[in-house]
Amino acid sequence: MPALANLTSREELLAEALGEGWRPGPPPGGEAEDAPPDLLPKALPLSQVIRVDYVVPGCPPPAPLIGEFFNAFLSGEMPEPGYVFAKVKALCEECPRTREERVLKKIVRPHELLPAPEVCLLDQGMICLGPVTCGGCSAACPSAGMPCTGCLGPTPKAGDMGLAMISALASLVRAGEEGEETIPKEDEILDALVDPIGTLYKFGVPTSLSPLRERAGVRGSSSPYPVPYQRGRGGEEGGGR
């Protein structure tokens, strides 16, 4: 999430936080090396800086996933490096809410609606990233009445979280009978999705596809993980990658 800082420049960050013209320097009587370091040009994903053997995703990682990691580690039966300790299937699969309509007629923001307790939040118009996010947290946020914001990262099938969600929304949006004349109305519905980057890439700016990746200065594999994504422990079916 701190990689949202990549949407702006470090000069702007410094100016906003410490005022125009602030530059790091040593304390009185100190030497140049005593000065605090300059900010790095961009926030990078960990896997661009060090080799990541295993991924336990989440912000923070849910306790059961941490438990799975340690069980595997202590039993000496670790999976192949690159394994992601989350489910392959989407969060919706473990969500207690029921999905009925599969149609998006309007977009509402969480503070604008007290959602009905058992109905899918997307059905009620909230941008819930459940369909494109890995399972593994027992759908903690939708259970608490709030939409998923994607902290466990994309499912292997989704790949790029924002693009997958935009694609999902485009197929869900419905302003009436299908046809050319409803398209402007459907566009109007989708226009209510304000701050799409902050909403769809809250946890994925540096690992998402270009142009955000380019802005983050990240080159190389399009995978958010350093080695090919492995099948999650909790999923019975293979990943889509």
Binding site: A5, L7, T8, L13, P27, P110, T149
Partner: peptide, 19 residues
């Protein structure tokens, strides 16, 4: 000496208030 900064004041701009 506190040697780091993340810049929340800047990158929160443009986000949805309820977030």
């Amino acid at each position: 000496e506190i040697p780091e900064l993340r810049g929340f004041e800047r990158f929160c701009q443009g986000r949805r208030a309820e977030e």
